[in-house]
Nucleic acid binder design. Structure first.
Lengths: 337, 337
DNA sequence: TTGAAAGCGATACCAT
DNA sequence: ATGGTATCGCTTTCAA
């Protein structure tokens, strides 16, 4: 790699001090440096195609202008979309985004956080993995700015931006009840994460308000790590039991993707045999024969807010925490009839 | 942010020099430092929870251990999947990935490259945008290591990893011919990018070998920036003309996504009314009523090879260039019958 | 208006 | 075996 041009090179060529060059190049016109000298330096800098070394700047300033984004899996459309929004928003503040996927595993998440802290990121945007509470607390203790997205921990006070998961599934379940479904199944992840708990709670609350009590047998929980192995059995339990459900609410779009495949394989028709509502849209559903009713999360707002809050927190470390909860909307289609 | 622990802090607490601390912490046991002192330093370092400042290391070593990934759009599943593979592979070498989306625009691509160069990335993995040839040449001239993926420029000698686009569409078109289709349409992007040209060439070659000459009216080109505005008209021109095609080859999965929606809207059935082959798989096709024949790109190989080659190039700047072309496979399903 | 020099944190050469 | 010190590129204080 050809050696890079530094302030020193410019200073030598111009026959001035490094300091003067620095002044001109960073402060612009009102640098205190004389106009002719100023011009000369600018000219040489551009001739030499000078590019400031961001690393050196960072070492000196203590700011890297980079943020670490940790999600479950960057290849998951939900997170890929958020990543794009975060990228664009971060660029507005001149921040760079470095990313990592935790695969919902605390150990990977922990490694990533350490890795990124060593690289001196100025802050984090994190969709925290199961059992990562301690890591988040550690971040807090070290006063490293961060914003949680998608999920958060109600027991600790942090910045977060998420949707109102409880209301979202509450409304969705109500919709299914209104459509005349009495037995409604829920397929969720087997997780203590707050967003998942809230989705389950919203479902239960709606059932209760309808005067029933939520049945354990209608709530199926699937392990993150063995989705494909468990989903068929859980779907079967819901729709093939003695008292089968007439509707299913899927707590994420990945669950729905595989769940619907099973429903199709069983030759059951949506919505005639089973009504369906899905949490989150996905391109995959574009071609489903029955247009799906789904809960639409405010991705753009989540992403932009997260960046705004993080950057603000980085600039003003004593700012009070921001906890943003944004409503999702229920997009009604045929599948919930 | 609580001030970070530095070598100096450890040195002070241990009553030794910074140099000794550095030796112990970087060289391990055979550091030349006495065993007792060694232990003492290690103990204090871990007590203080010392984390080396990667920025300082980078400044000193001239290596940032980060690579810039520039794709068209990180939220596009194709690139999101590649990003994940690159992330995992980079981690094996202790590299961090920072990413940016060019939206297929040369201007954005150029900004990103500059931005990342300033941040001292050690190298790039780039899916080059239209008209970005000059930027790539500039990278070359500056001796900055990079590997192109997905597309490359045949007129310049660079590292690249791509699939054999020509063979892929050649075989796909042949398949459609074998299935008895005489008029075959191609929907591609209106782009000079090599991968797109090769996909078009492969199609033409297959038609020629079948003893026909490719008709201009059967080849439809769509602008990147106005896909949704143009696709319906192009599909219509293919299937509703006086001499309609009986099969369509889509040059990317995004084109197919919208093209198939149009075909459905026209009440045409796949494959009875129109046979279809798609370049690349996508979750979106999982639910298409007719299982689609598609060209499966070797994503994993492309991603891992790109990282391997880049890291090798960073370590050995004089190494000769690697140009890797990996076959895609045609996954045959109902839609091409 | 200009510049010398300290310092950011870590490494490595060269003394002792 | 241990440590002083120059160095990476840049910013900023202080002095001239």
């Amino acid at each position: 790699m050809a050696k890079k041009v530094s302030l020193k090179d410019i200073a030598q060529k111009a026959g001035v001090s490094i300091a003067s060059v620095s002044y001109v190049l960073t402060k612009g016109n009102n640098s205190g440096v004389g106009p002719e000298l100023s011009e000369k330096i600018k000219k040489i800098a551009s001739e030499l195609n000078y590019r400031p070394n961001q690393i050196a700047k960072s070492l000196q300033s203590g700011k890297s202008y980079s943020i670490g984004l940790i999600v479950a899996d960057i290849s998951n459309p939900f997170f890929a979309n958020i990543a794009r929004i975060i990228e664009d928003q971060a660029k507005k503040y001149n921040y760079t985004v470095i990313f990592g996927s935790s695969d919902e595993m605390a150990s990977k998440s922990s490694d990533l956080i350490t890795f990124f802290v060593n690289r001196q990121v100025d802050g984090f945007i994190i969709a925290p993995a199961e059992d990562s509470l301690e890591q988040i607390k550690a971040l807090q203790k070290q006063n490293i700015p961060f914003v949680l997205i998608d999920r958060y921990f109600p027991e600790i006070d942090t910045n977060y931006v998420a949707t109102d998961n409880f209301m979202a599934t509450f409304k969705a379940t109500n919709k299914l009840i209104e459509s005349g479904n009495s037995e409604i199944g829920l397929i969720a992840y087997n997780s203590e994460l707050y967003h998942m708990q809230e989705r389950i709670n919203g479902y239960c609350k709606a059932i209760e308000e309808a005067g029933c009590s939520p049945k354990k047998s209608n709530i199926k929980k699937i392990d993150f790590s063995s989705l494909k192995e468990q989903i068929n059995k859980k779907v079967d339990e819901l729709v093939l039991s003695d008292n089968p459900v007439s509707a299913i609410l899927f707590a994420t779009n990945t669950l729905a993707l595989y769940g619907l495949k099973r429903i199709d394989a069983l030759k059951l028709k949506v919505p005639d045999d089973v009504s369906v509502i899905v949490f989150d849209a996905a391109e995959a559903f574009d071609f489903y024969y029955c247009p799906l009713t789904y809960i639409k999360q405010p991705l753009f707002e989540i992403g932009t807010n997260a960046v705004d809050i993080l950057v603000d927190q980085i600039d003003k470390p004593n700012k009070k925490l921001s906890q943003v909860c944004i409503k999702s909307t229920l997009v009604e289609n045929e599948s919930s009839k």
